[in-house]
């Protein structure tokens, strides 16, 4: 357990360093929304701008603001979002939920398709099926996501008119249709993920097949089906778990483009707008959450590794 404690401490150090770096980089962004307001409104004077900057604390050096922000955070205060004029938690809440829905659905779909494909391909390496899966896998990781998204909209929403083109629910009537609105963005994200999961699954299965215990099991006369399912698959799933766990944090904030194309108000969009609008509190909280998810994911992956694989009794 000491190992886990040290991992947690390391993760905290990473989070701290990241918040400092992001604060600094955002401070390095040229211009700021208040200067932008001066340009947009001829009646706004320099005095007005100075007053507003003081009001939002933007006139202080960023290191000082970062220190104050950290102090607040340690007291459990995330502060107010400057853009949304409400507490960060309140501004972030719905977006976290929306992203979690999108992420869970697309990850499930991607795995549901990718794992069987990877397993099937691994059973007959070099076969036609293997080649087809391989090609599909490469195709899925080689498409720009926004292009794929728009093509899905063109085909399924506009030409065939089967599915809504964007948004989360029907905005008219009773506001239903959540499921229908999920299909296209989930498909776009899942399609982009299938490739790597299928390839990893196949590689892991083939790797396991080379181990002695599988040969022994086969030699003992176990049915091939039983060997594959009971032994090979079980062990091959271990590396997959690691990969998925590591992927979660990235998906959490990295679905920005899918969210933009499908008008899905999630975390990617929220963080992007916060960064662009110098909303330090909101941007930092969003980024920290995403990073923390990756870190927790990797710790969980290690734990799972340790649990599932009796051969590994050593924490990496």
């Amino acid at each position: 357990m000491g190992v886990i404690l040290s991992r947690l401490l390391q993760s905290l150090a990473v989070l701290l360093a990241m918040s400092f770096a992001v604060y600094g980089l955002m401070g390095l962004m040229p211009g700021d929304p208040i200067d932008l307001m001066i340009a947009g409104d001829p009646h706004l004077t320099a005095a007005d701008a100075a007053r507003l900057k003081a009001l939002y604390g933007l006139d202080r050096p960023w290191t000082e603001r970062w220190a104050r922000w950290l102090g607040q955070l340690l007291q459990g205060e995330l502060g107010y979002s400057r853009l949304h004029a409400r507490p960060v938690i309140e501004a972030m809440g719905p977006a976290v939920l929306n992203t979690a829905t999108l992420m869970a659905a697309s990850l499930t779909l991607a795995l549901a398709i990718a794992l069987p494909l990877g397993i099937a391909a691994s059973l007959r390496p070099g076969s036609l099926l293997d080649g087809a899966v391989n090609l599909l896998a490469f195709a899925s990781v080689s498409l720009p996501v926004f292009w794929l998204g728009l093509m899905l909209i063109v085909v399924f929403a506009v030409e065939l008119a089967w599915l809504p083109a964007g948004g989360m629910t029907e905005v008219t009537g009773d506001g239903g249709g959540r499921l229908a609105h999920l299909v296209l963005p989930v498909s776009a994200l899942a399609l982009a993920g299938i490739g790597q999961y299928a390839r990893h699954m196949r590689a892991a299965m083939i790797n396991e097949a080379g181990h002695d215990y599988i040969r022994t099991a086969k030699a003992k006369g176990c049915s091939p089906r039983r060997v594959v399912l009971r032994h090979q698959l079980r062990n091959a799933l271990i590396p997959i778990t690691t990969i998925v766990a590591l992927e979660v944090g990235g998906l959490f904030s990295g679905a920005l483009i899918t969210e933009t194309v499908f008008a899905w108000p999630g975390m990617g969009r929220l963080i992007y707008d916060a960064v662009m609008g110098n909303d330090f509190n909101l941007a930092l909280s969003g980024l920290l959450l995403a990073t923390a998810m990756t870190l927790v994911g990797s710790i969980l992956a290690d734990l799972a590794y340790w649990r599932l694989d009796p051969r590994v009794r050593r924490m990496p």
Binding site: L150, A157, A165, G166, G167, V261, A263
Partner: peptide
């Protein structure tokens, strides 16, 4: 009886929403 204002940032998607009746 009801007016809904829907935000779709990407203009290509906005047009798609118009064409699909969204």
């Amino acid at each position: 009886k009801r007016i809904v204002i829907k935000a779709i940032e990407n203009t290509a998607s906005l047009e798609a929403n118009l064409l699909s009746g969204g």
